[in-house]
């Protein structure tokens, strides 16, 4: 079924670089409260969330998160162990069936309570990669090196991405406010600390609605004109790290063209450059006006926030066509592209 589906509301926490002493549920509950208040909805046709058990090192983190939703009477609900952008994808698919008109999507993560580099080492192939102890930052640096060599880009170009992202983040009340990059040493060469997304705690929620319901709930709905996601092979030696073929395919399927704004889930500065190339974004496109993940990276919500920020540009009238990108896995292994428009096709 083909229906017009839009992002009608977006809420997020003021992301925090340190543990503020709240549980995930306590962090999430005000965001859910805010989005219910903004839409005037207390019940949704479908609910879907994204989170990761390993962030707290206990199973079933999504079970207690349900307490924040008010799941009584019982609700139609699902959960992905992925960034909540994929929860939004699942909800978008569900709304296309035609029998429900609204969906609540949320994601949350407290990156501050564990060692993220060690945790995400355990996401790697358990036979050949994880036993080596190689961490995601080291792998990202490997990708950055390969990209610099292939594209003839300099480390200064990475620094420029970091500086622009941090400057934009300082204008965003929800992001961390980080200083301009200075003469800092390498974290893992060629990446320096400012090239790497800072750890943050945070949560975000989005409400999707279909057709006339969307028009009732929002003055200027951000219509999803296309959304798609694709995966790469896992092993870093089995693919061309310098290109994001899966992003290119997802963008083609989602009809990503003529966008004015792009919010990219680039957790390292070189990833923005690889993604710009895959998405065919030229200098006229405003990339990560929110500051992007380099200014706040509440894992498991970061991708959903990209969609929320892009939609917010439609809601406030600063753009008529925007692109949001979300990523998962090491070295941009999985990529999702969502195209939002101020005008519905139908």
């Amino acid at each position: 079924m083909n229906r017009d589906i839009a992002v009608v509301a977006f809420a997020q926490t003021r992301h925090s670089a340190q543990d503020d002493g709240l549980t995930e549920v306590e962090m999430l509950a005000p965001v859910i409260g805010e989005i219910k208040e903004r839409t005037g909805l207390t019940r949704f046709g479908f609910t879907c969330s994204g989170s990761c058990d390993y962030l707290a090192g206990t199973p079933f983190s999504f079970v207690s998160a349900l307490d924040a939703v008010g799941a009584w009477p019982p609700i139609s609900e699902s959960h992905v162990e992925m960034d909540a952008a994929w929860a939004l994808y699942e909800a978008w698919v569900r709304l296309r069936h035609g029998d429900v008109d609204t969906a609540l999507v949320y994601g949350f993560g407290k990156g501050s309570q564990g060692a993220l580099r060690e945790i995400f080492t355990q996401q790697l192939d358990p036979y050949y990669l994880a036993p080596l102890g190689v961490d995601p930052v080291s792998l990202a640096a490997l990708q950055a090196r390969a990209y610099l060599d292939r594209a003839g880009v300099k480390e200064d170009d990475l620094r420029a991405v970091a500086a622009r992202s941090r400057a934009a983040g300082r204008a965003n009340p929800y992001a961390l406010h980080l200083p301009d990059p200075d003469d800092e040493g390498y974290e893992v060469a060629p990446l320096r600390p400012s090239d790497i997304a800072p750890v943050a705690d945070g949560a975000a929620a989005i409400v999707l609605a279909a057709g006339d319901t969307a028009r009732e709930l929002c003055e200027r709905p951000a219509w999803i004109s296309g959304v798609d996601h694709r995966a790469e092979a896992h092993a870093p030696g089995a693919r061309d790290l310098t290109r994001s073929e899966s992003t290119r395919i997802a963008a083609r399927k989602a009809g990503a063209d003529r966008v004015e704004v792009a919010e990219l889930h680039a957790r390292y500065s070189h990833e923005e450059l690889i993604l710009r190339e895959a998405l065919g974004l030229d200098e006229s496109v405003s990339v990560n006006p929110s500051g992007g993940p380099l200014s706040a990276d509440p894992v498991m919500a970061t991708g959903l926030i990209r969609i929320g920020e892009a939609a917010a540009r439609i809601h406030d009238g600063t753009a008529t066509r925007a692109l949001a990108h979300a990523a998962s896995g090491p070295c941009l292994q999985q990529n999702l592209v969502c195209v939002l428009s101020g005008e519905s096709d139908g």
Partner: peptide, 14 residues
Amino acid sequence: LFEGVVMPEAYLAD
């Protein structure tokens, strides 16, 4: 936690 592979869909994709 059963297998100690975080979000193993990444490793299993290909």
